[in-house]
């Protein structure tokens, strides 16, 4: 795994942080998200390996670089350059009021299922996605379970033969 911080031209002018360890991490404002990813794709990042969403509702104070305003939601996209053998991780902050970000479907068709999963479980909307429907949960499900205000939904464990929920 690459330990040094690779120089990536597409990040010029945006807040960039080097993560110690595995990959470069960049914080991109959401209006520039798609254009930066397009520039990265042109810069030999052949594959989008992962898209996921995080809900930072109860995280408290987070250590973010200068100039990045923490918001409730975050979309984390991992891109992989096979020729340069580096990974880059893009973190986009999305406000609670409007958790919408551009879809990468036009650039990387392989993000289709990952974005659907992020919509299903975290409730982030992707503009330009061709089929933003639920993927893992049943169709009539209410809510997005990976949000922090959604309970885990378990049944209390009972150790006696008291009348239970069933």
């Amino acid at each position: 795994m690459t330990t040094e911080n690779p120089t990536i031209e597409a990040f010029e002018g945006f807040a960039t942080v080097a993560s110690p360890g595995v990959a470069a991490v960049a914080f991109i404002p959401r209006e520039h998200y798609k254009s930066v990813v397009a520039a990265l794709k042109a810069d030999a990042f052949e594959m989008a390996s992962d898209v996921c969403g995080v809900d930072y509702l109860i995280a408290g104070a987070r250590t973010l670089p200068e100039g990045v305003k923490p918001e409730r939601f975050e979309v984390v996209t991992s891109l992989l350059s096979m020729s340069r053998r580096i990974r880059v991780r893009i973190r986009v902050q999305l406000p609670d009021a409007d958790p919408t970000v551009d879809s990468l479907f036009d650039l990387y068709p392989g993000t289709e299922a990952m974005e659907r999963e992020t919509f299903d479980l975290v409730g982030i909307r992707f503009a330009g996605h061709p089929d933003l429907s639920r993927i893992l949960l049943p169709e009539e499900w209410e809510g997005h379970p990976l949000r922090k205000d959604y309970g885990i939904g378990g049944v209390p464990v009972q150790f006696k033969s008291t009348p239970g929920p069933r």
Partner: peptide
């Protein structure tokens, strides 16, 4: 898996 996704016992 005592959570939202799994039926807590198929006997339900």
């Amino acid at each position: 898996f005592n959570n939202y996704a799994v039926v807590q016992g198929v006997d339900q």
